[in-house]
Amino acid sequence: MSLDDLKDDVEANYTDLGESLDVDLDRETRNELAMLVAAMEPDDVGELVRRAVHMQFQTAVETGNLDFHLRNAYDVTYDEYLSGMTFEEMTGGQFPQQQQKDDRRYQF
């Protein structure tokens, strides 16, 4: 799979999700959500669910978990998705070379 496949899948999933989502809650999730509603007192319970999705996404990005899954499924990273081009396309297939050490600059 490729960057183009990922873009197509994201667009298709976005369309499929629509504006609302019915989610079945298991006992543990319902209990945890009830505790958060009691503590946070949101105007809308949906707001807590939206925050949870944002937190899950941010955590997946920060820990590299999203990149791991994207690399396995599409052979790209989130940064490549955001830029719209793969690392190879950005660099012409060349990996950055370590600069040669120039110890002479410290000689007097």
Score class of each variant (00 low, 15 high):
F108E: 13
V23S: 05
T63Q: 00
D16A: 14
T29F: 08
V23H: 03
A52T: 07
D8V: 07
K7E: 07
E88W: 01
D22S: 10
D16S: 10
P42T: 05
V23R: 01
L6F: 04
D44G: 07
M90S: 08
D8I: 05
F108A: 12
V53S: 06
D22A: 11
M35T: 15
R105H: 13
R51N: 10
M55T: 14
H69K: 06
G46L: 11
A52I: 02
M1C: 03
V45Q: 13
A38M: 08
P96E: 06
G92T: 08
F68S: 07
T15C: 01
A34E: 12
L17S: 11
E89G: 06
D9T: 00
L21I: 13
N31H: 12
D26Q: 08
E11Q: 12
T77K: 02
D8K: 09
R51Y: 08
F68E: 12
T15S: 14
R105K: 15
T63C: 03
G84D: 04
Y74K: 11
D75Y: 00
Q107R: 15
S2V: 02
G18H: 09
Y81F: 15
L17V: 07
V23L: 15
D102E: 15
S83N: 06
A38E: 12
V10F: 15
T15Q: 13
N31L: 11
M1H: 06
P42Q: 05
Q100A: 15
G64P: 06
Q99A: 08
N13W: 10
N13F: 12
A34K: 06
L66Q: 04
E32W: 07
E62A: 04
M1E: 03
Y106A: 11
A12C: 05
T77V: 02
D43Y: 05
D43F: 03
S83L: 08
S20C: 07
R27I: 03
L3D: 04
D4E: 14
A12G: 04
F95V: 11
D43M: 10
